[in-house]
Design a protein around this nucleic acid. Sequence first.
DNA 1: CGCATGTGCGCACAGTGTGCGCTATGCTGG
DNA 2: CCAGCATAGCGCACACTGTGCGCACATGCG
Lengths: 248, 248
Amino acid sequence: MPAPDDQSIPSVWARPRKQREQPTLSRESIVTEAIGLLDAEGVENLSMRRLAQRLNAGATSLYRHVANKDELIELVVDEVYGELRVPDPDDPDAAAGWRAAIAEGAHSLRAMILRHPWVAAVLGQVGLASLGPNLGRQSGRILAHFRQAGFQAGEAGQAMDTLIAYVIGMTTSEAAYLSMLARSGKTEQEWIASLRPLTEQAVRDEPMLTDLYAAIQGEDPAKTRDANFGYGLERVLDGLAARLGPQG
Amino acid sequence: MPAPDDQSIPSVWARPRKQREQPTLSRESIVTEAIGLLDAEGVENLSMRRLAQRLNAGATSLYRHVANKDELIELVVDEVYGELRVPDPDDPDAAAGWRAAIAEGAHSLRAMILRHPWVAAVLGQVGLASLGPNLGRQSGRILAHFRQAGFQAGEAGQAMDTLIAYVIGMTTSEAAYLSMLARSGKTEQEWIASLRPLTEQAVRDEPMLTDLYAAIQGEDPAKTRDANFGYGLERVLDGLAARLGPQG
DNA sequence: CGCATGTGCGCACAGTGTGCGCTATGCTGG
DNA sequence: CCAGCATAGCGCACACTGTGCGCACATGCG
């Protein structure tokens, strides 16, 4: 009979596992924890091992619920698409202005990407090709607004693609910029100041950029970004509205 | 005196290095070879070791010419920006139509990204924040066209941002889609066919998508992509032109 | 000739995604 | 109440990554 306190011999009596005290692993818990980790530490610090650690689990346990890391990322992307707030196209209040409804959807998409800047880095790999349920639902809603505005079937799709391309393109570079800022650990003021010599050199080489930088100097960068986004959004909507004839 | 053929003892007489027969390593050769590898094998297969192998060099030798992998990627991105063909704004022929000149630049940017689809995956991480010399030069040219069109200093920048955001957003998802296609090894026809059940399910869930897919059915996908890009580009240019008043 | 400078590279370290096969747990049918 | 089975969790291992360190060597300058 072995000494009961001998831990080195794995003994049936020394119950090694406390029975299920954690709420167990699940696809949902993995996805939400992954989003938490991505928000907190950025895409370059998402690894299966670190994610498992946060879930008090072994690294390879995750593979019981998720085929591989790429699939996890697809799930995570579709999950954040669920955060979009696109006005309900069946709501009679919204019938008054398709433009306002679509603008709201566009701002909602931008806000989501700025809330989760890693989405920008990941969209270039995943694209819009995964087409999960949330992306499907939100696309359907936006499309409905374009249809109600008067676009015919095929053109409504093209209009939606145009709008989304603009929002994603604009916001992706914002998000990439903000991510780099976060990685640098500096404030935006410090960052801009540290780049001063470089931008001045660029301006010397490209005189066309001169008054562009002069115009921005001294403005609140966040306000400037908001304004720039709004400007382009109005132009895109103008261009689309022109297709609807004089009354649109 | 050791035996002269004893290779296990590193001997000065057994000249281990053939003297310089390769054209030596350089920052330029590394960057161009990296582009070759990226084009051939995609961004997920670019590693310092594989790149060094292609250059008949040791992995860590690259670090004599490039600070780290991130810097290499910045260099590579600026290099492909050099492939853009934006009409010379000082060329009197181009003065006739700012719209045509800018459309040409936009198509050139799209063509570049489709030639190097990995750019899409990398732009989300690097953004436009790196601002190498090539990106600077091309931006200057596009900006000049907008100025010539009649946009004032600040607004010309906003107009350029809008245009570029649209092109990058649209082309990024094209490139991501094509990259995935390439990874899958199937032809586009096979890929679409293999997704049929999934898309039919999506259409069942989102009836708004129905006639969108119906409209695309049977079309040449590449033609459809070209047409979609062109449609959105015209809308964006319309929206911008409207800011210039009736004569623009 | 001797020395300084800089290039190339082998080694090593910490960390990655993920396949394999073992263990234990909870469910089900007798 | 017990036998058996499906399955969740996990330790180990493999091939691979980016990159710091320090040595060997080639080259250019005195």
